[in-house]
Write a protein that binds this DNA or RNA. Structure first.
Lengths: 150, 150
DNA sequence: TTATATCTTATTAAAATACTCGGGATTTGT
DNA sequence: ACAAATCCCGAGTATTTTAATAAGATATAA
């Protein structure tokens, strides 16, 4: 029940791009540095995100990446699905072509994994990069308020 | 975001025990056969469940396993935690001694993994073996009703 | 005492994970 | 034209995890 670094790094990188919107293309190098991720490894992840249209690339010097859509159109679930595959606590309840099991009709454990799957999907699809930007703003203002009182 | 066979087999085995309550000790061999699991492998899993008090063992011939508590006292979350460890989509939000990260205070992605963790825990802790037995009964009666109409 | 079980530890094959490396293609600034 | 920056792509690899398998010790009912 753990996300791999793919999903976690991917969300971090996408959020980084969201935070630097309007500054032109952002290089992987700068993202990797800020987020503490291997640049080469990040390259592989971003390649998938680009093919899925979640980011756009600009090649050449001063090139980099931009969000492929508005932040409120990019759900965390979209990012996770690209990088980790369909949400599926068990293969028999995968969001995409679940593995058919002959006992599926009367399998009680299966209904549990369905509930887990749906609850994960609901959380991940309820949060967008926009939501995260708002959260970050709130945390920032809470912090400065706190500093003020010291 | 996938459960390993440990968690899945474990839940199946525990449910099997629940379904055979009152029949005395149930051997691993019979559980393994019914559920299509390697007996030796199941042995390892059940060993953990026993240490956690979720099952009781009876050694010797005609021995086997019994539920360690009433089915309504055994949550699926308990089984999963024993076999797969604390629920933790990321190490920094593990239910048990989360890995401290210096950026935790203002980390926005962290709050996402917290929400995912809580939503998974909520589902798994809302289902008990008793719930599953009721579900199974319902599925069975639905099936026979359906058969009746053919 | 024998057959049936649980218990325990060690080993292992295969897969997944998390990188690393090397080189090619494209664009910008000099 | 050229160098530097950057994306792009495929292959290789070390480590860890998964899912068993194996072998033998211990306990008990019949």
């Amino acid at each position: 029940m753990k996300l791999s670094t793919k999903g976690r790094y991917g969300v971090k990188a996408m959020f980084d791009l969201a935070q630097h919107m309007g500054e032109g293309p952002i290089s992987l190098k700068s993202i990797a540095e800020r987020q503490g991720i291997s640049e080469h490894y990040l390259e592989q992840l971003v390649s998938g995100l680009r093919k899925a249209g979640l980011v756009k690339s600009v090649r050449g010097a001063q090139g980099g990446y931009l969000l492929g859509k508005e932040p409120d159109k990019i759900k965390i679930g979209d990012i996770i699905r690209v990088l980790e595959g369909p949400i599926a606590p068990a293969d028999c309840v995968s969001e995409e072509d679940p593995e058919i099991c002959s006992k599926a009709e009367f399998c009680v454990t299966r209904t549990i994994w369905e509930k887990v799957r749906d609850s994960i999907a609901e959380v991940l699809d309820s949060i967008t990069l926009e939501t995260m930007l708002e959260d970050a703003k709130k945390i920032e203002s809470d912090r400065s308020l706190y500093m003020y009182y010291i």
